[in-house]
Structures are given as C-alpha cells and as structure tokens.
Amino acid sequence: MRSDTGKLSLILLMTPFALWIVLLIILPQAGIGYVSLQEKVGPRQYEFGFKNYMDFLGEPIYWNTLLRTAWMSILVTILALMIGFPVAYYIAKIAKKQARAGLFLLCLIPLWVSDLVRAFGWIVLLRETGIISGALQWLGIIGEPVEMLYNDMTVIIGLVYTVVLFMIVPLVSTLDGMDDALLEAGYNLGGSRFTVFRRIIVPYAMPGIVSGCIITFMLTAGSYLTPILLGGKNSSWFTEQIYNQFITRYNWEAGATFGVLLLLFTSFVVWAGLRLTGQSLATTVAKE
C-alpha cells in the first residue's frame, strides 16, 4: 500500500517534468536539427542532405561571423573574470560584515534591469552627442564631438558590463565559504601573496570560477541586443545571422543550421571547460 502511493506520487511528479523536458526542450532541439538537414530542391519540396552545412562552410561571411562571435565571447569571459574576481573577493572577504550585504545587493540591482535599458544607457553615454563626448569637449580634451559607438571596443565594454554580474554572484557565494584560517596557514607557512592566491584561493574558488565562466560565456555568445545596439550594422554577431535567416529572409533551413551550429559550439566550449577543470554541470551551474 505504502509503496503503491509512493509509485503513484512518483509518476505524478514525473509527468510535468517529462512533458516539459520532452516537449519544450528535446523535441524542439531535435526539430531544428531535422530542419537543418532539409535541402530545398524545389518550391515546397525538400530532400534529406547536408547542403545547408556545406553552404555555411562555403560562405566565408557565415563562418567568419561564428569565429568572431566565438573569440569575442571568450575574450569577454576572460575580461569579466579578471574584472569581477577582485570585486567578488572584496565583497566576500575584505568588506566589513555590514557593508557586505549592501555591496552584494548593489551588485544585484543592475541584474534586474533589462539588457535593453543597460544598452540604452551606454548609447546615451557614448554616442556622438552623448554625455562622455560632451564632457570631454567641455573639459577641452577634444575639439569636436567623437562617436564612441559602433566599434568592437564598445561592444566588448558593453558585453562585459552585461555579464560581469553573473560572474561575481557565483564567485561571492563560493569565496564566502572559504575559511580565513586557510589563508593564515598559507602565509604562516611562508607563502607570498601570489603563492597564496595561486595555491589556495584559486583552487578553492574553482567551482565558482567555472560556473561564472560558463554562464558568462553562454550569455555572451547568445546575446543579441548589446552587440547590435552598440555595434551597429557592422557588429556581425552570429545570433543576428540566425535572426536574419529566420525572420528577415524566411529561410528556416539556413537559420536552423546556424542555430544547430551555435548550440554545438557553445555546448562544446562548456563541455571542454567542465572537462578541463574536472567539474560537472550539477556542481557548478545548479548550485545557485
């Protein structure tokens, strides 16, 4: 009797989970995989084949965009880690106890503001008639307005801005659990600052670093608004290509192919990152 109700409740709880994962995740992903393997041979006529992938390889603009998105995402991830780590360490270990919660909350506030608002803020700051250009003129540093939008530098600054919080939050929660006695021990044993950092702090923070990097990388590679609004027409971001194929050109086969490629690429980077650091998805991303 007891085990029957147990089994029944297991089935009842499993049903929504299974419906969700199968209908909204697995089958749709399989769906774009299927569409990407459809070759158009005539109006409303399709055959199975790899033509869409061949087209992708044959057109340098496409794979250059993917490569560009890839290396810029990796660059943004590294920058976010380098910029975010000292801040996370400060919040978790150096700030006074009362200040800690406040600083952490301050970190979270922009997290709740839409990407769009943040990108819009950067536009107001950086464009030709923007605040920074105006301030520099007022100070006499520059003679005439400068356009600071629409270049790679700005896109990177904006992307780091958008994702750095997702780096800091897991880092703070990992570093928070570190016992100061570990650091004391490191110094007492004669370790220099650098040694303590490399041999104690970094290994301890590794789960936080990995999960921060994964989230940051995914968000960057999949971002749409920031590169397009801050980079303008020449941003050549891969998600923009996907959007163009799907919505502007209505070429779903090519769009699905690009989608599959982006997914494969990001999954590969996440897998490689987990593999290299010996972590798993369940111990990093899911910890929050």
């Binding site: 749709p28 774009i32 999949g222 989608g259 999954s267």
Partner: peptide, 18 residues
C-alpha cells in the same frame, strides 16, 4: 539544468520550428 545553458535565441527558434 540544461535549459539554462542553451542560448535564448536557440530556445526561441527551436520552439518556433517545432
């Protein structure tokens, strides 16, 4: 956990296609 590491654009097109 996987849906969190699929780019949002891809979740969107996959559901659109399906």
């Amino acid at each position: 956990v996987v849906p969190l590491v699929i780019p949002g654009v891809i979740l969107g097109i996959a559901i659109l296609v399906f």
